[in-house]
Amino acid sequence: MEPPVILGIESSCDDTAAAVVAGGALRSNVVASQRVHAGFGGVVPELASRAHQRLIVPVVEEALAEAGCTRADLTAVAVTYGPGLAGSLLVGLSFAKAFAFGLGRPLIGVNHLEGHLYSVFIEGPRPPRPYLCLVVSGGHTQLMLVEDGLRHTLLGKTRDDAAGEAFDKVAKLLGLGYPGGPVIDRLAQTGDPAFRAFPRTRLDGYDFSFSGLKTSVLYYLNRFDEAGRAALLERHRADIAAAFQQAVVDVLVEAVRRAVADTGVRHVAITGGVSANSGLRAAAEAAAAQDGFTLYVPPLAYCMDNAAMIAVAGHIKWEAGRTSPLTLTAEPALALS
């Protein structure tokens, strides 16, 4: 049998993306980012579903061209159907349904979080199942157990802010630019993580909370008047960044180590945009060496929102015979189970 050629489409938030995976190997990966980084401490997303509408056809055409294939070569069309913004999801999903129907090929609905879980299968060493997956990004902070047969168990998730969001908001408090993750990471490398002990919130089970940490940075800065704060930041901005980052990293890595000990699973993937954080990587590698588990971190391009992970998840679902009816609807609040 010919190896399956899967087109993946992703439009759950800011980016319109398409990718082609043939026989499980990535052939193309196109992302049209609608983001414009501005100097006011946040993304300026042209969040319009109208922008997705404008971009979806050229992005898919480019993904097919780069992969060196035509529509007729496609085995199935995989698409994100949730969670995300209703209007944005609908553009990708409606396009995928029409495209699959027109070609007479099956549709495969993919949960955006499934994409993050399987992003570790795009390139490089792939973990055997079962494995633990920590998904850390601007929108998500979840620890999952991934087993054979597309079985996913949620072990814990954030009860308030996502880890990436905490980075962005603390970067803003420190007068740093956007996005906050890379800026704090860079600064933290020259700072002293022991400068100040910000609180590590440890909850029952594997749940996370980063809201209290963000607030404690704010309260710490608020102890000073305007001039005092400016002087403090001038002298200790890197130290505060390092202390904050250390608190986030400690909380994440502690949960992973506990999950490894509790489940006996020796393979751990860290995915999502925050997995690029050098402090997190170093701490996770140290924990892996000490506790004897194997760590998998995909290249950054597959950690940001992308369609390669949707196509790969689609490939895995296709092999398991999990196609979706054309009546599939967008589910903005879709959970992963």
Partner: peptide, 17 residues
């Protein structure tokens, strides 16, 4: 379920029932 309610900063809109 209160554990479903988290900050929607990145997602812009979160829907609950």
């Amino acid at each position: 379920d209160p554990t479903l309610v988290s900050s929607p900063t990145f997602t812009i809109v979160q829907e609950y029932t």
